[in-house]
Design a binder for these strands. Structure first.
Lengths: 323, 323
DNA sequence: CTAGGTGCAAATAATTTGCAGAGGC
DNA sequence: GCCTCTGCAAATTATTTGCACCTAG
């Protein structure tokens, strides 16, 4: 966590003056996981410095919220709670009313819908908070096991990797199949090359996943953190299905372009939304790879259309590629 | 609002004793629209009865929340706010941080996703709260017009009717087109009959909509309250497109069945989710109509398959109809 | 030097509670 | 008669503020 100080440095201009006290408070706060009430944070601070007053803690929290370091969340139990934004994408909460534990998750699907609703009203969103109150499975089963939960950062990275791997797999299948089906030798070469790349990336991603597991061997067993309904894996999968039905090589390439473009936009868009974190990096790196593939495919598509001028013009080829 | 007392009566057993004071508080509370803080409610109560104390209001609110008459919502401004559950489906909020107004909406799409996430965790949901903080369009534009907003009840009814009407319209188009395309005379009769029914229902619904407008002539101008992304109107519309491509009458009927079933499930499912209200009734009544259509279509389908035993078996007809 | 940060104590603000009496069942 | 509701006032809890002082830029 050495980027942390750099991160804070970036924020300074917003907040004016630096001070030892505030630094301490911010520091202690960022080291914590989960949701702290002002009072809990105060107690923690007091362990380090007996002389810091409650008011200072409140003021520091207020500053952090303003500077975007922290978010204020309300669990309905009277006092406010705070959580970091640092390496911690905004997320939603499942709150168990029995054991008072809270579980986090992230759903890009929901975020998209929220955006749609807001824009339908001309509303400019700054923050959205979703809390689902109810009973957790442990409490329902009578278990009172205080299951330790991995850091959100790890879960996020895990889910981002899972998604990337799933996409890579179905991409691999798509291109392998495509290489078999395509007639044009150059198009086939491109499909084969892309298949090879997917295979290579897949290996890389799987290694990265294994490395992640080293940090917490139970990582795979924790529940999903990042929900993506029609995540990219569906894109290529349905693409592969449709591949069997394409009329010619041009259509096959176009299908590839559509899949890659969907996948690229998807990973880029979400990668951009998150705060600095391993998960964000995974998303963005993956998006960059998809962009390369996309470029390759589009180039090949243009060449193919050039070669066979007798394009049937059924679906305005150039326009589609341009998008 | 005469069902109101009956409604409260139903709740009594949960809450023990009836009392004039509490009745007054509940009464005043239910008459209000929007989100009241305890204090605002207290002021309103005081207009009726100078001697009621703040504590009593708090206690009554606490009771109401427990009894399910009210919900507690937190807008992050320090004090809690309360809103009815009565004739007021749970909903989400857009909260403008500048003018402090809040706008409600309902999104079944989001609710579905929330349910999915919760069940993926084995979490039993009791309530979900979604708050979107930001800046409303009025504040963005510098307008400070305190636009009056219609009662949620009305907006909900309006949107339910809009949805029903849209579905009815595309259903009408579907069956009209179907009647032209179908070969089998009996199948044609069914399509014609359904088209006629849709036309009739459409008229009824449109009248109902006009009546609703009498209650608030600006009703149409208020922003959408109920968001339904792939609302039923999309179902029949895409059905009509596909109608041109069906191979035979059996497929045409099957397409109708699929559309009706989708529509039926849709309206039923959501109708069931809401608290007693005009909107709920609209949903459920509409669902009942769709069920009738569905029954008719399935009957016709079975007859047709019986007539032409030479079914190609391409899509396990009976099984599909059964679902 | 000066704006902002800090501690302390006092002030608010929202909500809860103890207690004695009133009222429904 | 018992149990719950009610008013009042006092208590509690979370958070903010005034003020005098301190410190980084």
């Amino acid at each position: 966590m050495d980027t942390q100080s750099a991160y804070l440095e970036r924020l300074r201009p917003l907040g004016a003056k630096r001070s030892g006290k505030r630094d301490l408070i911010v520091d202690v706060f960022l080291k914590q996981d989960g949701h702290l009430s002002a009072d809990e944070l105060f107690d923690l601070i007091r362990e380090q410095d007996q002389k810091i007053s409650r008011a200072t803690v409140y003021r520091a929290l207020h500053w952090m919220v303003g500077a975007g370091v922290a978010r204020k969340v309300d669990f309905g139990d009277g006092r406010s709670r705070f959580e970091h934004s640092y390496q911690h994408p905004r997320h939603f909460h499942l709150i168990c009313k029995l054991c008072n534990r809270s579980f986090e998750f992230l759903s890009s699907d929901i975020e998209v819908l929220v955006e749609e609703v807001a824009s339908a009203r001309g509303f400019e969103t700054r923050q959205s908070v979703l809390q689902i109150y109810g009973t957790c499975d442990d409490c329902q089963a009578g278990r009172s096991v205080q299951r330790t939960v991995a850091a959100t950062e790890l879960l996020f990275a895990r889910d981002a990797l899972r998604m990337a791997i799933a996409t890579e797999r179905s991409g691999l299948e798509f291109y392998s199949r495509g290489a078999e089906l395509v007639d044009d030798p150059q198009a086939r070469t491109v499909f084969q090359r892309l298949a090879a790349e997917e295979r290579e990336h897949l290996t890389t991603l799987e290694k990265r996943f294994e490395q992640l597991l080293l940090e917490d061997s139970d990582l795979e067993s924790y529940p999903t953190f990042l929900f993506f309904k029609g995540a990219a894996d569906g894109l290529f999968a349905s693409g592969t299905d449709r591949l069997a039905k394409v009329a010619d090589d041009r259509e096959a390439l176009m299908l590839g372009i559509r899949c890659e473009r969907g996948s690229y936009r998807f990973f880029k868009r979400y990668g951009e939304r998150f705060e600095d974190s391993e998960g964000k990096r995974i998303f963005l790196e993956f998006a960059a790879e998809e962009r390369e593939h996309l470029r390759l495919l589009i180039g090949e598509y243009r060449k193919l259309v050039g070669r066979s001028k007798a394009a049937d013009g059924s679906s305005s080829p150039e326009a589609e590629v341009a998008g």
